[in-house]
Amino acid sequence: MTVAPVIDQLDRPLGVLRLSLTARCNLACPYCCPDAKEPEGLLNLEAQLAVIRAACRLGAHTLRLTGGEPLLSDRLWPLLEQLAAGRTDPSDPLHQLRQLTLTSNGILLTPQRALQLKALGLDRVTISLDGADAISVARMTGLPGEARTGERLLAQVLRALKAARAAGFDPRLGQLKLNSVIQNGVNQDQLIPLAALAREQQLELRLIEYMDVGNRNGWTEQQVVPAAEMIARLHRHWPLEPVGRAHHATANRWRYRDGGGVVGVIASITEPFCGDCNRLRVTADGLAFTCLFANEGLDLRRWLMPRPDHAGLMAVLTAAWHGREDRFSELRAQLGSPSPHAEMAYLGG
């Protein structure tokens, strides 16, 4: 199979497809504000595979399955089965996928599901956790004051990490990571406890600046804890040395000098990395977004329903990427916040 990588207006190739399986979540994190129900017209399995194969033909080498909470979707398992079969066939565009990952809050990640994910060829699991104690977990999952619920959720996430590790997702190989959003005035006190937890679990922790995605979360710049400040605070506890940010990656990484592992920071607000962004997002109902901060998407359903028009889909995605010039984070001050602004859970983060 011949791959013809597409390049946008800023010479950025398409490399990563983030496919959302659902906009629903079993948590209510206030920085994300997920929907309570699915949008209409969800892509079926045939349409999902058509989108993935088209992206692969255009150069995508990584597929990230997201939500909402993707483990809520009963469409996850049939999709993984088809992806596993296609990746082993050199004539299938899916053979181009070098990495298949899933992002989850971990609540539904049982030992059985972790083993299924591994058996179906998933290469990496990223778990989201924004607090290291019951009260903080309750607050960050939209359940303030519910300490007992926070204890239960934290215990479930820790069990999920154990299950993923037992299933063969090796954190030393980057196959199991921990994501944490740090919000000033809300959970900034959890920075050191989360880092201590990640060090204890030998996990790479990725600290994420609170972002202005969507209209529901009440974002203000004062709520952002800058990446440089987070690294400085960590450095005072455990001295760090820079590793850097790989080309097209989101995280700028640092290594603990005492051998305690690696920590990354995703600084979309204070240190934007638009210049080499290679990600295309497709929502669960088939809208393609070329930027996390975009205010509108391209509706692909015309080329997907009732049956995929593969040539038409290739043409429209090629044109969309060729015309892409998004760099909202770099131009945030000049552009202001676009309106309407798609929500994070709908876009898949």
Rank of each mutant, 00 (worst) to 15 (best):
R113F: 00
R148F: 09
Q156S: 15
P144Q: 09
E146L: 12
A132W: 07
V157T: 15
A134W: 01
L115V: 11
A134I: 06
E146T: 11
T110E: 04
E151P: 10
R113E: 01
L129E: 00
G150H: 06
T149W: 11
M140D: 09
T126P: 00
G150K: 04
T110M: 04
Q116M: 10
P144V: 09
L143T: 12
R148I: 11
K118T: 00
T149H: 12
A147M: 10
T126Q: 09
Q112H: 12
D130K: 05
G142E: 08
R139E: 14
E146M: 12
D130G: 06
L122C: 08
G131F: 04
L143I: 09
L109A: 07
A138K: 04
T110P: 00
Q116H: 08
D130E: 05
P144A: 08
T149S: 13
E151N: 12
L115E: 13
L109V: 03
A114R: 05
P111S: 01
L143N: 12
R124Y: 07
T126D: 11
G142H: 04
L109C: 01
R124P: 01
R124S: 11
L153P: 05
A132T: 09
P144H: 09
S136H: 07
R152K: 14
I127P: 06
R152W: 13
K118C: 00
D133V: 03
V125P: 07
M140C: 15
G145V: 05
A138M: 10
M140E: 12
L120I: 00
T126S: 14
Q156H: 13
T149P: 07
